[in-house]
Design a binder for these strands. Structure first.
Lengths: 248, 248
DNA sequence: CGGGGTGTTGAAGCCTGTCAACAATTGTGG
DNA sequence: CCACAATTGTTGACAGGCTTCAACACCCCG
């Protein structure tokens, strides 16, 4: 079985065979979730860490009036509750978008990995933060058409990093409503935006599969620059000789 | 001199006298920045860590068309470039909003603190992430009036945590344009939103000083719940009914 | 005193939301 | 395999929030 986590971490640092073993032995039990099932709910205190093995999930926050805002997508190789181990209670919820497999990692197991790869794991968590900032720009300052294009580019790149792109196609188990919840717009408007992207020959999005016909044009439409995803890991050189070598 | 960092970290964990000394001896040099001066720019690779000692600053990202989105405010006790030590290059910029003092912390000094307080520092960084998620909800799904009220509540609470609230008043060195940049709306619309908040007797906001006349009403108007700020630090106790309990 | 930044106001228009209806697709049970 | 129900996608008309543009008042500071 593919190990998406290892694959992702590999882009952040040069990992060796021992590291690979450490990552692969990480999970003990795997849980299955059907679409729309809650993986972790608001206010919970997860007692163990969760890792996405297969499928899609979304983090979201909701308002009393029933609207919700998706604040992040989880794909294979992403941690679910890394943060909550330290923060305590969940300040948002996580829901399965597709059928998905989620591994549980005991605190003990995780500690072992942390000792070995603390810096790399921290890196992964900071990339998540960078993504949040870009989303803020996306929702706050881009028009919905650009924002949609930008989001699709981002998802494409993230999936590519873990090897889940197949010939310009990705699995994207989202309804138009779901996409709208991530973009801060209504389902109906999402429909119109997608129509335009389709009409202009940039994408096809049908039954959970997104095909990007012209990636460069889509980037152009969304003003997308993958820089913030830090896909190539921490660029070494220059200064930054580990303020954190204590972690190694 | 007040040590805002120590004050903030104290809410996250029980710190002793040794911890206090470690925090207080952290900075060596202090830099001064005038309003609108860039503290760290997009694409830079800061060689040492920065800590806000005094004054306000903002993180922002901008678009080719000239608009910008503020993605976070920095107040005394906040780190500026904690993340970039690991990520490498800055994916956003930081600008001074008021005259402010920024301490530089050498990698060596910071290591010493980290060894002692790693978990506490990690906690602080995760709170920042939680704030970003709430902003996404704010901008994506709240109306501008609610969003503005919500943001003001948040800033009030954050300042209160480090002891910078004076009788319902806080220093908020922002123009209406700046507030708008944080809310994802135009300066003109910000003006109208503020007028309404004022008209309804909730606030007064004049020459860089915000007075909150009715905090509860302002919370109500913005749907504000300080939970996500994790002001009381990690709550212990009460384990969760995790979605995985069937596995135990 | 003058000038730049900031706040305020009004009118017009666009982007996006709302409502309502219907089509298409998916999933389910007989 | 079909029939049915439920979900999802699509369309149009209309309303509303927010933006844009343009003008003017205010305030701080040299």
């Amino acid at each position: 079985m593919e190990n998406y986590l290892f694959r992702r971490l590999s882009t952040a640092a040069a990992l060796d065979e021992d590291d690979r073993r450490a990552v692969e032995q990480l999970h003990e039990r795997v849980g299955l979730f059907e679409p729309k099932k809650e993986i972790i709910g608001y206010g919970e205190r997860p007692e163990c860490l969760h890792l996405m093995m297969q499928g899609w999930a979304a983090r979201y926050k909701s308002l009393p009036n029933g609207t919700r805002q998706i604040v992040g997508f989880l794909i294979p190789g992403d941690f679910c509750g890394l943060n909550m181990q330290i923060l305590g209670t969940m300040d948002h919820s996580i829901v399965a978008l597709s059928r998905c497999e989620v591994a549980s990692i005991s605190a003990k197991q995780f500690d072992k990995l942390t000792v070995r790869l603390a810096r790399t794991l921290w890196w992964a968590s900071l990339v998540d933060e960078a993504v949040l900032r870009e989303w803020l720009l996306n929702i706050g300052r881009r028009e919905s058409y650009e924002a949609a294009a930008h989001l699709l580019c981002e998802l494409y790149c993230r999936l590519e990093q873990v090897g889940l792109v197949d010939n310009g196609q990705i699995i994207l188990p989202l309804t138009q409503e779901g996409l709208g919840d991530a973009l801060g717009i209504t389902a109906i408007h999402t429909n119109r935006v997608l129509q335009r992207l389709r009409r202009e020959g940039l994408i096809t999005f049908k039954s959970g599969t997104l095909t990007i016909h012209d990636f460069d044009a889509l980037c152009e439409a969304g003003g997308f620059d993958p820089e913030y995803l830090h896909l190539k890991g921490p660029q070494v050189g220059a200064t930054a000789t580990s303020a954190f070598h204590f972690l190694e």
